[in-house]
């Protein structure tokens, strides 16, 4: 399973559905990916995190750790877990169209 069609676009994905090429991403894809992960509606706070994930990935080549995510976004950890239940860094990365972050913290 290496390609999939979502929001009328064909994207390359890995085994867990993370996009392999973040340039193929758009906001419609994000909305669809969010639904797949159980987030029915992306609100402004969601989008802020998604954009931050993409920015960090573009600058550093890896998605941010949970600590960097909370520091840079100013969103408290508790809220991150509410916005993206069961693993904010992973879920936000998937919806943001970047690979799974590799950091441990």
């Amino acid at each position: 399973m290496s390609t999939a069609t979502i929001a009328q676009k064909t994207i390359e994905i890995d085994q867990e559905g993370f996009m392999k090429d973040h340039t193929q991403w758009n906001e419609d894809i994000a909305r669809e990916l969010a639904k797949l992960e159980g987030i029915d509606e992306l609100t402004d706070p969601h989008w802020a995190i998604i954009r931050l994930m993409r920015k960090e990935y573009e600058e550093k080549g890896d998605g941010p750790s949970i600590r960097r995510l909370t520091k840079e976004s100013g969103v408290p950890i508790k809220e991150l877990y509410q916005l993206f239940p069961k693993g904010p860094a992973k879920k936000a990365a998937k919806i943001a169209g970047i690979p799974k972050p590799t950091g441990c913290i």
């Binding site: 399973m1 979502i6 085994q15 867990e16 559905g17 797949l36 992960e37 693993g87 998937k94």
Partner: peptide, 19 residues
């Protein structure tokens, strides 16, 4: 990596695996 608990929804994108 095994594919066992990868759930595939109608769109052909798998969900994040739960440990």
């Amino acid at each position: 990596m095994n594919n066992q608990d990868t759930q595939t929804l109608p769109s052909d994108i798998p969900q994040i695996k739960s440990p």
